[in-house]
Design a protein around this nucleic acid. Structure first.
Lengths: 153, 153
DNA sequence: AAAAATAAATGTCAAAGAAAGTCAAAAAGT
DNA sequence: ACTTTTTGACTTTCTTTGACATTTATTTTT
């Protein structure tokens, strides 16, 4: 029979993958579902979800407490994602498309929230209001590309 | 299941944001609305609206008493200075002027080096190469202003 | 008009409740 | 034998609740 710890590990990793790289649980509930003592969860977290293994675990005690597990994005995958994104971008970008891109970058931890906001401001319609017609979306793309390139240097 | 404290915190912050950074409540009424004991409000105020977290709480007891919460505005004099400079600089900006500005921002510790590089990329001639003639420097100014504005929020 | 009583607010503090954390002993693998 | 896993008692942290205290405003009494 499979080890309990392995079952818990597999379950958590499945939950994480189904949830964009992070998950929130309450230790007690999960323990109950799996029919084990709560500290077993702690054990699994400390042996299979360490920092060195690419995970970050936060928690909070007390009423309504929780445990969150984040899968860290390695710079390798991040830069791969950026490369792919840049290549599929084409040479035009609407304001909305830019927002979607930036949102994804944040989700994939390529850039931080605060950085995304600055970039969003830079490529907003408001910033580019003086530009006429079809050139606007091309300039927008140029700006975003330059910023992203700069960022990954 | 969301914590009651979190619900109260979120509600208060929403009220504050909708009301130019401050709000006045009566503890009893709010407690009644939220179906909790009044001291729960006190607890939330003492754990989530501390001075260190950027809030100031005043109160008064007795008939007609109240509790006021103010969100403290960080008076970043350097940032203010820079905004003033931006505003008095007219509506055009060359690439070189932009670089000088950004270097000053970093020196005044208004923004960090990495942020400055992103901004520099955004307003570089390379980003804006598709824009014709005199409009280019106006667009550059717009972009920089929007980014700085966003940054100081 | 002054004093006293009453009502209407917030403040305090400690106990109870609800989570996660720790650690060492026992059990199970290797 | 040695290492890893499982278990459970105990600890720590955070939240919720309620009784009681204090402060301020209003009303009543003298």
């Amino acid at each position: 029979m499979a080890r309990l710890s392995d079952v818990i590990e597999a379950l958590l990793k499945e939950m994480i993958d189904e949830n964009q790289g992070s998950v929130e649980i309450t230790r007690g509930e999960l323990a109950e579902q799996l029919n084990c003592v709560p500290s077993q969860i702690t054990y699994v977290l400390s042996t299979r979800f360490t920092n060195g293994q690419g995970y970050l675990v936060e928690s909070r005690r007390g009423g309504g407490g929780w445990i969150r597990i984040h899968k860290l994005v390695t710079t390798d995958t991040a830069s791969q994602y950026v490369m792919h994104a840049l290549n599929t971008m084409g040479d035009e970008l609407t304001q909305h498309q830019a927002y979607v891109f930036l949102r994804n970058f944040v989700d994939y931890q390529v850039i931080e929230e605060s950085m995304a906001k600055i970039m969003q401001a830079a490529v907003s319609d408001h910033s580019l209001q003086l530009i006429e017609g079809p050139i606007k979306d091309k300039v927008r793309m140029q700006i975003l590309k330059q910023m992203i390139l700069q960022h990954s240097m």
